[in-house]
Design a protein around this nucleic acid. Structure first.
Length: 208
DNA sequence: TGCCAGGCCCTCTTTAGGGCCTT
């Protein structure tokens, strides 16, 4: 599924009620963009009602209030639509292990599963932007001089800025190593190898 | 009401501990 779909990709971000779906936390907002050949071809943004009140901490952290969620559809309804949105595409998220756990947990409630590949822009940034002060999304957007498309910690803005970050890292690799094309599975591999070997790996790609 | 996780990665490491990230 990876290389043949290298020209399409869904970058996603969840806002949730907490850190752990295993302890009952649910998603309250999904934001995503479909990238086709490096440009945004489609968007998906929904608020959803988790079925219980969210904490004051989450209200302050995300700007999403209990009042805002009152009339919104349940998670199951939104996730059914989102499952169709991501079907056939690989996905990217910042600290993807977090978003993947929530994606899997929500889809499991629908007796569904995501079958594609998932790559982490945080892990990739630790190899491409090794000199950045830290690798929080907000810091990297500033560090790479990318446009701020909205409020941080809202799903759609975070997804769009993660997409910009992703493209900026691809651009940096292309320019630095003279690569005309770099595939999703190569970036996925790069995010998994020891970051000390990142340069050696990319140099190897340049020689192919 | 208050609490909860997990994977990566560095180092004063590998028979471990703790910071970084995500909400």
């Amino acid at each position: 599924m990876q290389r043949k779909l290298a020209d399409t990709l869904v970058v996603l971000d969840f806002e949730t009620t907490g850190l752990s779906p295993e302890h009952g936390d649910r998603t309250i907002e999904i934001g995503a963009v479909l990238l086709e050949n490096g440009t945004i071809a489609d968007r998906f943004q929904r608020l959803m009602n988790p079925g219980f009140r969210i904490s004051r901490f989450i209200e302050g952290y995300t700007g999403i209030t209990n009042e805002m969620l009152k009339g919104e559809p349940r998670c199951e309804e939104v996730m059914a639509d989102f499952s169709e949105f991501i079907a056939g595409h690989n996905i990217v998220a910042h600290n993807a292990s977090f978003d993947r756990r929530f994606l899997d947990a929500e889809l499991k409630r629908l007796n569904q599963a995501y079958e594609g590949e998932c790559c982490c822009s945080l892990l990739l940034s630790r190899r491409i932007y090794q000199e950045a002060p830290n690798h929080k999304l907000q810091t990297l957007v500033s560090y790479a001089a990318l446009p701020q498309t909205g409020r941080f910690h809202r799903a759609q803005a975070d997804a769009e800025m993660t997409a910009s970050l992703w493209m900026s890292m691809i651009d940096r690799i292309r320019r630095q190593y003279g690569l005309s094309t770099i595939f999703f599975d190569q970036l996925s591999e790069l995010s998994k190898i020891d970051r000390l070997y990142a340069h050696r790996y990319l140099s190897g790609l340049a020689e192919e």
